[in-house]
Amino acid sequence: MTPAPYRIRSRRPDRADTVTLTLEPVDGACPSFVPGQFTMLYAPGVGEIPISISGWFRPGGYVQTIRAVGAVSRALCHKRRGDVIGLRGPYGTGWDLSAAAGLDVVVAAGGLGLAPLRPVVRELTAHPSLYGRASVIVGARTPATVIYPQDLARWHDGHGIDVQVTVDHPDQAWTGPVGLVTHLLDRIVFEPRRTFAFVCGPDAMIKATAVELVRRGVDPRRTAVLLERNMKCGIGRCGHCQLGPLFVCLDGPVVTYDVAAPLLAVREL
């Protein structure tokens, strides 16, 4: 439970309340990770929270995107280049990309849910021949809260991935779709029976999207979702992340929807 010291190599404000940090170990090597895994980031004296890994940089470090919603995330967002924070992990299960080989791929993100999905799309852009058609659909509250706008544009323009973004509350300049992310499923092309889906966002978004995918014929075992729960330890010790039989920190955060569906269906589980 002792974090290792990591130095902030760079800090990029993404949106008004969101910051992307690159983190490298003060000494030693940075453990490798599987996309979908998270680390516990420790802001000294303030607290420790789970944050997904959004990328890797050479020779060895993590890219992590943090939205300031409370005390710890705010403290992490306020850190500067060169500051040292604590890091444990990576922990949890990752996205099973090998299971998607040869299939159409749908990546569905709600808000900050795009952060843990970014390395999935990077893989799709790096090895396009391994997969079928690839689409990325993103739902956000407002245009200003869509993260990684440059990545989205690059994936679309440079890599031929179908990228669609919808918002709940458009502003004057918005010309794209308005409404739920599930509506975007009508705008992309995939063969449901030969599709693997990666879904991340708030519980309600995950449920709505997965239900819609399954209704269209996607196999729940080919619908991977990333769950969020209160986490204090990340290693099956504190008990906070329990979802019925699961420790989301150990058995998740990534699980397939056949596992998640009956659990998410129970109120207050």
Binding site: G45, V46, G239, H240
Partner: peptide, 24 residues
């Protein structure tokens, strides 16, 4: 029953930070 939570504290004077685990 093994559940715990964390408590953080800081000394503003010398910057020492501490984490305590306690029964929850």
């Amino acid at each position: 029953c093994f559940c715990t939570t964390m408590e953080d504290s800081t000394s503003l004077s010398d910057g020492t930070a501490e984490r305590v685990e306690r029964w929850d």
